[in-house]
Design a protein around this nucleic acid. Structure first.
Length: 843
RNA sequence: GCGGGUAUGGCGGAAUAGGCAGACGCAAGGGACUUAAAAUCCCUCGGGGGCGACUCCGUGCCGGUUCAAGUCCGGCUACCCGCACCA
């Protein structure tokens, strides 16, 4: 009898061996086929690893380990996205330098990851806060600046009142700060911006060349929000000036019955003298400005507005005079900040027109109901009417014709717009990459020389953000005051720092050549390793990190720095790991639940009581893990009690990889039991390097299934197949050495420690991590004898066992015999699906 | 409102390309072993009816296509995630 399975001994033993043997480094032999597997590097927070982290890390560790065994030169790296607010806030609170905080957190994360047995190549570890690293982040910024893609602009930004920092649009969630949940207000500040909008089209087109899961592509496209239409100039009655609008429906131009400009539109100030109700407009504008973005959209249902008294516009195609209104449903930040309103064919315009009694003119016929009753927006079926030379045309044709007309007359042209905004790139914070720009009174913004990089973060007394919105760096006079690299005169340094997204926008490039001090990575390394073959990460990064990094990468490609236009060949996303909600009725302790049920007269009352106490969230049996709910599971505890192999197996077995799944400790136990059964296989080991006759088909099937499932995110069914196989061994109480060898190899990527130990104990040659991945023979995956179902009129009535390649007639004959007197009436049709079933249709 | 996703036993979830629904695991019940418990092993485990071989019903709801539908088509409902007045 073998000794009992002691996971602690086994796991620490093999982790040391792998370290000593440098088991998972990459080969310098660049003639070997490469495979670059990547997971998002974590932010090393003070809380340590969460059970959510191992899900993606294990998934790609499986792929990396399998690919190595298949002979690929695999790069599977890990690093730290270590700049960021929480570290800075922790530093402020505890008066510890953020560098020290980072160092401690990284050490903790690293030991946790190590204890999980990941095959990361630690020689390639990167850290965004290292000067050798952020030197190149700054270098890329300078390139962007020199290309005119980085600029400073006075603009209203999203300002987090608690973090005291400007946020990108992507970082504002439901009107509050994504990170701290505090209120976000608009504040006008001078900010560094990156012109991601210039890359909008390339970012959309690039999606056609890569293998991303569909919902990621769709989210990115929606976020970029490309729309094509036209800009049209309306004249302002009695003025030389034109009012330019943007529309996606130029075909409805004849149906414009009024115009709307945004409350911030400059024409209001420009024509202040002529406007008779300026005070009312100013009051409206003030009211609109006070609304946060959140309120503005919350109140979307109820349209408000004020007509400009004293100005009218003229429709350029029919000369009709129409009123101009001001309303906050028109945004200054999109299009031209002004629209033509066609209430008959636009939902918002229709609502507004109904509320303020404005005329509604139908110009696209085809609605079953009058446009006075209901808006008609269908572009596929309508036909133009009341539109002079457009009458009778389809919407698509009318668009073409009117745009040609506008362009010919010089009153408009086709135009593409995007929802995507430029990226707010500065943060008024200490713990980030300094922006390598000097502000000279004479020369303006001057980039540092490349040789000056890295521009290091200075040591400061206090990291506190300031209420006036300046970075803590601004108080460091000795650092701020410098000379202009261009004219040598007195100048000041930029004191804002870069956002956390900067370092993570190119880290995958650094992994290919992490110690290079001449370039961000050598051409040779980039040529060999890029693009990343498979990148897995959270859905929440789809419109942030993923888009930003594609933008940087594409820019670097356009500038000859990297060899491929897209950084990631394949992108997948994992689901979250959720915890039980302690405030949900079904999760209460039994006595507590009984009591509540009694007190509130049954289930409905009890649920309502919980909802009143804890809010709507009480309705959900499973929720995100959070410290405040006390439902967080620490992976260290699981590793300690059950082992890393069990944790890895469980997280892969928990359910479909891309869906969220609820943590269950009972499920963990089930996986532990599975590994215990694996451990016991060594007691039933039988001679024979091949497969036993009765299991040969099964072995080939399992190799095929596991190999495919590992590559297709179907880890749960791969593990199920191995569980089934072990049940077969148990039934016979025997496993040949050949079967054992294959089994251990298949399981190794999921549970690397236990399998390595058993491999050694069985006396197989070398190390399992270096073994060859087993092959299967397609011909041997099909069974010679198959069970097929026999149906009568589609209902199962019997099963028969037949040789797989038996001919149809004989099978049908056998089926009929098996049915006996269950078959009555006239046989109308006989259907045979090879290897599956026979269906006899009888009347 | 728009976009995307999901819905299968007590639970997590399986089910190539329309072909035997419920693999695998958990929980539960029964049994073996044990002085006992834990662990382990064996059996049962969607629902109804029948002593029984069997039989009827069953994949969120309503309809359809088909010899055959969890899977395809049309129409809904509920929940989850994004976006949200983008003209």
């Amino acid at each position: 009898m073998a000794i009992p399975y002691n996971h602690r001994e086994v796991e620490s033993k093999w982790q040391s061996v792998w370290d000593e043997e440098k088991a998972f480094g990459t080969s310098e032999d660049h003639t070997k086929p490469k495979y670059y597997a990547l997971v998002e590097f974590p932010y090393p927070s003070g809380d340590g690893l969460h059970v959510g982290h191992p899900r993606p890390y294990t998934a790609l560790d499986i792929v990396a380990r399998k690919r190595r065994m298949q002979g690929y030169n695999v790069l599977y790296p890990m690093g730290w996205d270590a700049f960021g607010l929480p570290t800075e806030n922790y530093a402020i609170k505890h008066h510890i330098h953020p560098r020290i905080v980072t160092k401690n957190n990284v050490a903790r994360f690293k030991s946790q990851l190590h204890s999980l047995g990941y095959s990361f190549d630690w020689d390639r570890e990167v850290n965004t806060t290292d000067t050798d690293y952020y030197k190149w982040t700054q270098w890329i910024f300078l390139k962007l600046f020199k290309a005119g893609l980085a600029y400073k602009a006075e603009m209203p930004i999203n300002w987090c009142t608690s973090c005291k920092v400007g946020l990108a649009n992507e970082e504002v969630v439901n009107g509050v700060c994504e990170r701290c949940g505090s209120e976000v207000i608009r504040k006008v500040k001078s900010q560094w911006m990156l012109k991601i909008t210039e890359y909008a089209d390339k970012l959309i087109q690039g999606l056609d060349t890569v293998d991303y899961i569909e919902r990621v592509k769709i989210s990115q496209k929606n976020w970029i929000g490309k729309s094509t239409g036209a800009e049209v100039d309306f004249s302002i009655t009695g003025k030389e000036d034109r009012l330019r609008i943007y529309t996606t429906r130029p075909d409805t131009l004849f149906g414009a019955t009024y115009m709307v400009v945004s409350p911030e539109h400059p024409m209001i100030e420009k024509y202040r003298a002529e406007i008779r109700n300026y005070d009312a407009l100013a009051a409206y504008r003030e009211q609109a400005a006070k609304k946060s973005d959140f309120e503005r959209t919350e109140l979307a249902k109820d349209k408000t507005g004020v007509q400009i008294d004293g100005l009218t516009a003229t429709n350029p195609v029919n000369g009709r005079k129409i009123p101009i209104w001001v309303s906050d449903y028109v945004l200054m930040t999109y299009g031209t900040g002004a629209i033509m309103a066609v209430p008959a064919h636009d939902e918002r315009d229709w609502e507004f027109a109904k509320k303020f009694g404005l005329p509604i003119i139908e110009v696209v016929a085809g609605s079953p109901v009058s446009v006075q009753e209901q808006v008609f927006t269908d572009v596929a079926t309508g036909t133009l009417v009341n539109s002079e030379f457009l009458d009778g045309l389809s919407v698509a044709d009318a668009k073409k014709k009117i745009i040609a007309f506008l362009e010919e007359k010089g009153i408009g042209q086709s135009k593409t717009n995007y929802k995507l905004r430029d990226w707010v790139f500065s943060r008024q914070r200490y713990w980030g990459e300094p922006i390598p720009i000097v502000i000279c009174e004479k020369c303006g913004f001057v980039p540092l020389e490349e040789s000056e990089l890295p521009l290091m973060l200075p040591e400061v007394e206090s990291y506190e953000p300031t209420d006036n919105g300046e970075s803590p760096l601004a108080a460091m006079e000795g650092w701020v005051n410098t000379t202009c690299p261009h004219c040598g005169g007195p100048a000041k340094r930029e004191t804002d720092t870069m956002p956390q997204w900067a370092g993570s926008s190119w880290y995958f490039l650094r992994y290919t050549d992490p110690h290079n001090d001449k370039a961000l990575a050598s051409k040779e390394a980039l040529e060999y390793w890029m693009p990343v073959d498979w990148y897995n990460g959270g859905m929440e990064h789809t419109t942030l990190h993923l888009l930003y990094s594609r933008f940087w990468h594409r820019f670097l490609y356009d500038n000859g720095v990297v060899p491929c236009p897209e950084p990631y060949q394949k992108r997948t996303s994992h689901g979250m790991i959720l915890g039980l909600n302690p405030h949900n009725l079904q999760n209460l302790a039994e006595d507590e639940r009984e009591e509540l049920l009694k007190a509130h007269g049954g289930e409905q009352g009890a649920r309502k009581a919980l909802r009143d106490k804890f809010g709507e969230m009480a309705d959900h049996p499973v929720v995100k893990m959070s410290k405040s709910l006390g439902n967080v599971v620490n992976p260290d505890d699981i590793v300690m009690e059950y082992g890393a192999d069990t944790l890895r197996t469980y997280e892969m077995f928990i359910g479909a990889f891309d869906l969220s799944a609820a943590w269950s400790e009972d499920g963990v136990k089930g996986c532990r039991r599975f590994l215990e059964r694996v451990w016991k296989l060594q007691d039933m080991l039988a001679e024979g390097e091949g497969y036993s006759a009765d299991l040969e088909t099964r072995m080939h099937q399992t190799i095929k299934k596991v190999s495919n499932d590992y590559e297709n995110l179907k880890y749960n069914t791969a593990i199920a197949a191995m569980m089934s196989l072990i049940n077969e061994f148990n039934k016979k109480n025997a496993v040949t050495r050949g079967e054992y060898r294959t089994f251990l190899t298949l399981l190794n990527p999921v549970a690397p420690h236990i399998t390595e130990e058993l491999w050694q104990a069985a006396g197989f040659e070398g190390r399992l991590y270096q073994a060859k991945w087993p092959d299967y023979d397609e011909a041997k995956t099909v069974e010679a004898q198959v069970e097929i179902g026999v149906q009568v009129n589609g209902k199962l009535r019997a099963t028969i066992s037949v040789p797989r390649d038996e001919d149809k007639d004989r099978i049908i004959q056998a089926a009929k015999e098996a049915l006996g007197d269950k078959l009555s009436g006239n046989v109308v049709k006989e259907i045979y699906v090879p290897g599956r079933l026979v269906n006899i249709v009888a009347k």
